[in-house]
Nucleic acid binder design. Structure first.
Ligand SMILES: [Mn+2]
Ligand SMILES: [Mn+2]
Ligand SMILES: [Zn+2]
Ligand SMILES: [Zn+2]
Lengths: 144, 144
DNA sequence: TCCTATAATGAGAATCGTTATCATAAGAAC
DNA sequence: GTTCTTATGATAACGATTCTCATTATAGGA
């Protein structure tokens, strides 16, 4: 039993939620994954021993317990925006309470810092960066 | 006719795609929006004069023409990851070619720079930041 | 201006990701 | 082991998105 397992087990026990086979499988698959994964991807990794309906319920349970989080708030719908060459470069503020996502511009000097960081990170990872955005999650002015 | 309109019109003309009433409505709604918006939100803004089926087609056409982009690659599905207290803080590399999203850790000194920036940006916007991530889009090592 | 070829639209069906239902199975407490 | 509670699996229902196809609008060319 790994440290991660023990942490999750403890977290669930605190909430009187059982750490079952299906839930363990989801946590293990995500721990192996190295990035955010969809239900379909997890199902492919885990195999048919955990049917999709159980998989989705396990995900929901683990999310409620704070063990996993959706990547950004994009809960199964696509949000569009004007391309950067039209809208101008900017970043985003995501409110975890009301679900809003708003654009935010930052001054050029700060942007220069971000760009330098992004270039350095990308270079280290052999990644050809085309664009980037800082996604800041928290409570918007209305919800705080 | 606004500058934005002229830019989009030119872009579409170059590709022999017509800049129709529905497509104009989408561009205008997104320009007004101040953040990424879902099809349902755009439909609410635009009104029933553009039915949902046409709205979706307009979005697809404009996306192909590079006029608008989906916020991250999350095309109508949710990707999950372990919560930060379990996975550790990190950032993301999104490949626009293969659609992969991978975690990336950055050294503490760079992270300190990011954190300072995030705190400053959030303070300016009256936003209570709880977490953040740098989302870097481009071509992964395999696809470049 | 009128024709014609092509592209776009609208209504609705189909599809796909996700959630809800409900009967059954498994787990914890005694 | 009995009992009460929680989790599971199959499947139906749902909502977001895409597809189909008959109709309409548009851009050029005669
Ligand atoms: Mn934006
Ligand atoms: Mn991640
Ligand atoms: Zn809010
Ligand atoms: Zn790739």
């Amino acid at each position: 039993m790994t440290t991660l397992d023990r942490q999750v087990e403890h977290r669930l026990k605190d909430r009187d939620v059982r750490y079952t086979r299906a839930r363990r499988a989801v946590v293990e698959a995500l721990a192996q994954a190295g990035g955010p994964r969809s239900a379909a991807e997890l199902h492919a990794d885990i195999g048919p021993s955990v049917p999709l309906s159980s998989l989705y319920r396990s995900i929901a349970t683990l999310e409620e317990a704070g063990v996993l989080t959706p990547h950004h708030g994009a809960r199964s719908l696509t949000r569009y925006e004007l391309a950067e060459w039209l809208a101008g470069h900017h970043h985003h503020l995501l409110c975890t309470s009301c679900g809003s996502v708003e654009d935010i511009d930052i001054p050029a000097d700060r942007e220069a810092v971000v760009r330098r960081l992004v270039d350095a990170i990308a270079a280290d990872a052999q990644f050809a960066a085309a664009s980037h955005a800082l996604e800041i999650e928290g409570l918007c002015a209305r919800c705080r």
